[in-house]
Nucleic acid binder design. Structure first.
Lengths: 126, 126
DNA sequence: TTTTGTGTATTAACCATATAATACATCTAT
DNA sequence: ATAGATGTATTATATGGTTAATACACAAAA
């Protein structure tokens, strides 16, 4: 599994982000079983403790749920899950707007650039 | 001077960003003198070496220019300066698009969100 | 010429993160 | 029952990058 981690953000946060994206786009459904800590660590070529840290935080955020020593599952709470999508989108929007606000760019120019970049699926990184 | 540094990005990068924004929006013109390392460090409440590191990298990027031990100046090369604005905008767009692409959001929704957030200057963080 | 302010360089200390090495309790198959 | 796989916890170490402390050379001004 090519995880393509970047060097600036902590790995455990990037793992959380990975799951949030899968939740947001529907790849992960409520109640779905996710890999064990050890399995994930192996697939992502990461230390098991790093996987554990990511899972622990996801548990605290209510994204996953673990019973005794059963494999963790995506929470069944649809409320929580639907918020993930909103959260990711709003975070991205906020970050973007904050970045460009200081530069005084006309809105139209921004919207055009985004639309062009976004709809041009071919330019996706391989 | 309230620099409002965040904790995740290195301070010296945030300083560079600070200057790039001033270049991009025209506050800093070609040939303008910028504060000395020590003065900047004092105003931003940062270690002089951190300021030095920022300046050193800006020098390598051709943004500023330093003669012997005179205060550094913004480069006179208009080409380089105009690229800064483009660079900042494209970086922001790329980052944003990459963030939301995995979530499958309709373009219209994105554009509306951005326009709303961007034109609503009142909601600026204080 | 002495002081002060430049830029520059070197070395050390610090810190968050990631990794490593173990250990333990519990469940589920075999 | 036994073996293997869970989740969980603790402690130590390594690492990479940032920041801190200090020193030096040079130039301008008092």
């Amino acid at each position: 599994m090519d995880m393509n981690f970047n060097n600036r953000d902590p790995v455990y946060l990037q793992i959380i982000r990975y799951f949030k994206e899968k939740i947001a786009n529907g790849e992960l459904q409520p109640g779905d079983v996710i890999p064990s800590r050890r399995e994930l660590a192996h697939k992502m070529k990461v230390n098991p403790n790093t996987a554990q840290r990511a899972y622990k935080e996801m548990e605290q955020q209510g994204l996953i749920h673990t019973e005794s020593n059963q494999p963790s599952k995506i929470t069944a709470d649809i409320q929580t899950l639907s918020k993930v999508r909103e959260e990711l989108i709003l975070e991205a929007v906020d970050l973007f707007v904050a970045s460009v606000r200081t530069i005084n760019v006309p809105v139209e120019e921004l919207l055009e650039l985004i639309e062009a970049k976004y709809t041009n699926q071919d330019k996706k990184e391989v």
